[in-house]
Design a protein around this nucleic acid. Structure first.
Length: 215
DNA sequence: TGCCAGGCCGGGT
DNA sequence: ACCCGGCATGGC
């Protein structure tokens, strides 16, 4: 079967098995951006604790958070790497407040290409974080790759685990219709199946909805 | 108890 | 162009 058919079939199977995932969990674009940084190599549950702390302090607003930057490390402590992530969050806040007056409309006026390069220029924002912000906070049709994406697709021989990030992105953006909702759901479903059936150091999983079919 | 979690950076080869 | 150590908390 051709690769684009297999990629489509995987999506169909995942959607039938798990249903809509309702990503990104977060009430506002800004909350999504903050979550995208805090979830780097971290369990989402710990991120929700950190975001709850910011909410309780009534600081989940770019300018307020930037003014209270000294409080950030303690607030986000549950999300791990908290000194490092506080710096990364501040770097992003400075970019967003100083260059865009922390106004989402000003971000939305820019092209996806431009925004990606600006986000990647911020220390602490790499490929996955930048693209998560583009897809889930700004509704741009960008395919997000994470460790689960690599695991699931490499185990089904779609591509090699270590294929460079942009190569994977280009494959999907060529072979999958550039529809924001489709990209939203596909990435969320890959995380879902990855967590449940495609764990690290467990190569085979017979209970996986993708496990016993000819793709 | 050790391993894992929705990465990224900087330095070394 | 890769490869690696560091970063840190909470769940299982």
């Amino acid at each position: 079967m051709r690769t684009n058919r297999r990629i489509h079939k995987i999506y169909t199977l995942l959607y039938k098995s798990f249903g809509p995932q309702h990503w990104w969990p977060g009430d506002t674009p800004f909350e999504i951006m903050v979550g995208a940084i805090l979830t780097q190599n971290t369990n989402w549950r710990n991120v929700t604790r950190a975001i709850d702390n910011i909410k309780k302090a009534e600081l989940l607003e770019p300018k307020k958070l930037l003014k209270n930057r000294k409080r950030i490390p303690r607030l986000i402590k549950p999300s791990g790497f908290y000194r490092l992530k506080a710096k990364r969050l501040v770097a992003f806040l400075e970019y967003y407040v100083h260059n865009y007056n922390s106004n989402i409309s000003n971000l939305r006026a820019k092209s996806t290409k431009r925004l990606r390069s600006e986000l990647l220029a911020i220390s602490g924002i790499g490929n996955e974080t930048a693209d998560s912000i583009l897809l889930y906070a700004l509704s741009r049709p960008v395919f997000v790759t994470d460790v689960y994406t690599r695991r699931v697709f490499s185990r089904h021989n779609i591509f090699a685990y270590n294929l460079p990030y942009d190569d994977i992105r280009h494959i999907f953006e060529m072979k999958v219709p550039r529809d924001v909702q489709l990209y939203n759901e596909y990435h969320a479903l890959l995380v879902k199946v990855g967590k449940e059936h495609c764990k690290k150091n467990e190569p085979l999983c017979t209970a996986c909805p993708l496990g016993d079919i000819t793709l």
